[in-house]
């Protein structure tokens, strides 16, 4: 564990708390992509299968349980409790285009051709693009509630913090995880447009609005 990774994990944790807070206080999942949330459930379950057979640390164990639990809870809230506030007609990104290529990439790029390792690779690749249905939706509506943009910013910053963590680990431990690094850089890259608008508008107290 190092400073950057901790900041990344805390940012990830914060993003989920902001998301649940938004759903609870506005009693609505308006502006949120159900597809993106469903992809995160798939990401966490396929990546954290090792919960059942590998002990890393208490921190690792608790965080994994939290990420699986909170993503399932989010999906439940969106699907059942606040279902009427979700508009499927604007959540139209085809997730087949993400899941298929990620599955193929995972079969090609993995550290060992075993079920758990291929699923782990799959989860890393899928996480890197899981935000696309959400960003696509944002692009379509052209605006977002401020609380939703805080959620997206925290979620984007989380993986960005992992990048200095990997550099740090390379120099201190000699550890390199090319699959996570390439996917993590791609994942952060997808947020650049969003970050630009977030930091130039929302952080200055303006509403999140995309230029027409």
């Amino acid at each position: 564990m190092n400073f950057f990774r901790l900041l990344g994990d805390l940012s990830h944790l914060a993003s989920i708390l902001i998301l649940l807070h938004k759903i609870k206080t506005t009693r609505s999942c308006r502006g949120l992509s159900f597809k993106t949330q469903a992809l995160y459930v798939a990401v966490f379950i396929t990546r954290y299968l090792d919960l059942t057979y590998r002990w890393v640390s208490l921190y690792n164990f608790v965080m994994k349980l939290f990420f699986i639990g909170s993503s399932c809870a989010t999906l439940y809230l969106m699907r059942y409790k606040y279902c009427p506030t979700h508009d499927p007609s604007i959540d139209t990104f085809k997730i087949e285009y993400l899941v298929g290529p990620c599955a193929i990439l995972a079969l090609i790029f993995n550290y060992k051709f075993s079920v758990s390792e291929v699923l782990w690779s799959f989860s890393i690749f899928l996480e890197s693009v899981a935000i696309l249905p959400q960003l696509f939706m944002l692009q379509r509506t052209g605006e977002a509630e401020t609380i939703t943009t805080h959620y997206l910013a925290a979620l984007g910053i989380y993986r960005a913090f992992y990048i200095p963590n990997w550099i740090y680990r390379y120099f201190t431990e000699g550890v390199v995880d090319p699959i996570a690094i390439v996917a993590g850089i791609a994942q952060t890259g997808l947020y650049l447009d969003f970050f630009y608008v977030y930091f130039t508008k929302v952080m200055q107290g303006e509403k999140f609005e995309l230029p027409a």
Binding site: D9, R47, V56, N60, K64, E117, W120, V176
Partner: peptide, 10 residues
């Protein structure tokens, strides 16, 4: 170069 197969990250 050591591949991180321990997957100790989240």
């Amino acid at each position: 170069v050591i591949l991180d197969q321990a997957h100790d990250e989240l």
